[in-house]
Design a protein around this nucleic acid. Structure first.
Length: 305
DNA sequence: TCTCCTCGAGATCT
DNA sequence: CTCGAGGAGA
């Protein structure tokens, strides 16, 4: 489905089309476009595209309330089929800039396809860029970004107005990247995956030397159901224990998460568990325990406090 | 240590 | 959809 859909890219090209749609709802399959707004930036010149579109069914009160677009306003508007050819030539092969671009791209793709046009333009999603540039921001809606960057919005939820807002955001993102010398390539690539869960030093120095985990080396396998692996590691460190990544002869406990494996690996033991069983056959005293038994050992520590 | 895969959580558009 | 976590295998 949507075999020829373009790629989501992160870049700040010289030429592009900022675009926004108003629709009868969120579903590209069941809902229809009622307004198109676009701004083409090409060769240092800006050109606007704006039109209302008459859908085949009524616009709900919710949408009229949200956008200010009423059925009466759409009464004499052109149908989508008469608008699409002009939009297609307006856009050309330029990349599309939009906020939550998949929403607009999917609507356009489906409508273009029905009308016999191809649409495989790449697209630049300001939502995605915002999350990359400002990961500490709690939200990345158009409204939140505007407040954060001190951008003034006018007539929100009308297509061309939102286009201008998105364009202002896009320009500020560009300036932010330029001024800080942020490498676009590193933005485009997925973030570097952390291999190890971060574990902080224990808060206390006086450990309970009688606790069963004290000075014991522990290894995890499988998904924990009651807490994250990082939290479990922290518990062990806080009790004076040691966390290891690999099964070696100095490991005392292998802790198996209770959460189910994916269907594909159901009933298949992890390599860590097989290694532990081999070691036990060879005379090792490593103990293989379930997550629930591990949790009991932790609560045992609470009883002593 | 590295790459590839799967899964779940969380978020945005009208 | 995007991303991070975690497992598997080399």
């Amino acid at each position: 489905m949507r075999e020829f859909k373009g790629t989501s890219v992160i870049c700040f090209p010289q030429e592009y089309v900022v675009l926004d749609l108003e629709t009868t709802g969120l579903s590209p399959i069941y809902d229809e476009i009622i307004e198109i707004g676009a701004l083409k930036v090409s060769g240092g010149v800006q050109e606007e595209f704006q039109t209302l579109i008459k859908p085949n069914r009524m616009v709900s009160y919710f949408i009229t309330d949200l956008t200010g677009i009423s059925n009466d306003m759409l009464k004499n508007a052109p149908s989508i089929h008469t608008v699409l050819p002009a939009l297609r030539s307006f856009i050309g092969n330029l990349p599309i800039v939009a906020h939550n671009a998949h929403f607009d791209i999917n609507f356009l793709y489906d409508n273009f396809q029905k009308t016999g046009f191809t649409f495989s333009n790449d697209f630049i999603d300001t939502l995605r860029i915002s999350r990359k540039l400002f990961p500490d921001q709690p939200r990345h809606t158009l409204n939140h970004i505007c407040a954060h960057l001190s951008i003034r919005q006018s007539n929100a939820h009308r297509a061309l107005s939102d286009v201008m807002t998105t364009h202002a955001i896009f320009n500020q993102f560009n300036a932010h990247v330029q001024s800080r010398g942020i490498d676009i390539e590193t933005l485009q690539k997925p973030a570097i995956q952390k291999r190890k869960a971060a574990v902080l030093p224990p808060p206390n120095t006086g450990f309970d030397s009688t606790h069963p985990l004290y000075h014991q080396t522990c290894v995890f396998t499988g998904h924990m159901s009651q807490m994250t692996r990082a939290q479990a590691m922290q518990k062990i460190v806080d009790l004076g224990g040691i966390v290891s990544e690999t099964m070696t002869k100095r490991v005392s406990y292998l802790i198996i998460g209770d959460a189910a494996y994916s269907n594909k690996f159901k009933d298949i033991k992890s390599t860590k568990q097989r290694k532990a069983e081999q070691m036990i056959l060879g005379g090792s005293s490593v103990k293989v325990i379930s997550e629930s038994v591990f949790l009991e050992m932790l609560s045992d520590a609470h009883d002593r406090l």
